[in-house]
């Protein structure tokens, strides 16, 4: 991309050794990049939406890696190649600029970011899709200092967590789950790393999103928006089960019937241990 040096090939002796070294170096870089890519990917996605987000992240990462190695490579090359040497006489050529180059390195990034933007817009339209009619399970999430309430309005189940006893949301696999999230005191963030997703719980506001879990298992989540003293303890989990297990769980009235470690959670009809100045009434808000 930058002006080519005039006399590059005639330095060094054995070009074949050079080429072999270059190949080895290239292989090493490829191995390094492959290894690094393993380490720097997002969590393995556990919803249909998360797969798209993960793919988009990988695209952005690939472009970022190219830019990173290109520019850092140019910096390292300059530092090695253009050190001032004892043989340097006089000044180097006083280049003040190059219009063509400058247009190229403005236009190429411009096209690249527009392309990534379009790709991200496509993903966004899926991830943020909120079609009420396709929702198969509806849950209400309310954040409060420092725990979560999970409600299943259709089944009349409400689960209240505490900072010590983290609540668990149970949802069936491969079904569209619609979450409406709010807060009754300060801002919170409903964040599940393996869903590659978070949505803020903001007092006075109901945020709605949908997800379709596609992996069985328990996925940990925690509050991502700083919410005061015990912010770090505001954890929860999402358990994805088969439809049959889910039906049984609902029929049994929620967590008390489930033997898998969530029996400590109780079902109540009133909020526990929270001051509720601005509790959101979901019934009045239609999504």
């Amino acid at each position: 991309m930058l002006p080519k040096r005039s006399s590059c090939a005639d330095r060094g002796g054995n070009t074949r050794t050079m080429r072999r070294l270059a190949t080895l170096g290239l292989l090493a870089i490829v191995a390094l990049v492959a290894g690094a890519c393993q380490a720097v990917s997002l969590r393995s996605p556990a919803t249909d939406q998360a797969i798209l987000i993960s793919d988009l992240y990988n695209l952005v990462f690939a472009v970022a890696a190219v830019v990173f190695f290109l520019v850092e490579g140019l910096i390292v090359w300059s530092v090695i190649r253009y050190r001032r040497k004892s043989t340097d006489r006089g000044l180097p050529a006083q280049t003040h600029g190059n219009l063509v180059l400058e247009i190229v390195w403005t236009a190429v990034p411009m096209v690249t970011v527009i392309a990534i933007f379009l790709a991200s817009w496509n993903v966004l339209n899926v991830v943020d899709a909120r079609d009420e009619s396709v929702a198969q399970v509806k849950v209400e999430v309310v954040g409060y200092q420092w725990a979560w309430k999970f409600g299943y309005p259709d089944a009349g189940i409400e689960i209240y967590g505490t900072a010590e006893q983290n609540p668990q949301l149970v949802v069936p696999i491969n079904k569209v789950v619609q979450v409406s999230v709010s807060s009754q005191d300060v801002n919170h963030g409903f964040y599940i790393p393996e869903f590659l997703f978070q949505r803020d719980a903001v007092p006075g506001r109901v945020n709605v999103f949908q997800f379709t879990p596609n992996k069985l298992g328990v996925f940990n989540g925690q509050c991502s928006a700083f919410c005061g003293l015990m912010h770090h303890a505001m954890r929860f989990s999402v358990k994805v089960v088969t439809q049959a297990e889910y039906d049984a769980w609902i029929a049994a009235g929620g967590p008390s019937a489930n033997a898998a470690g969530v029996a400590t959670l109780r079902i109540t009809t009133t909020p526990v241990a929270v001051a509720t100045p601005a509790i959101v009434r979901f019934s009045r808000i239609t999504m």
């Binding site: 987000i53 952005v60 970022a64 790709a119 991200s120 991830v127 978070q198 928006a225």
Partner: peptide, 18 residues
């Protein structure tokens, strides 16, 4: 470079506030 990851909104959903 690591800031550009927040420009595509869906990726930001995954890394925001982390």
């Amino acid at each position: 470079i690591n800031g550009v990851f927040s420009a595509p909104v869906p990726v930001d959903y995954a890394i925001h506030a982390t």
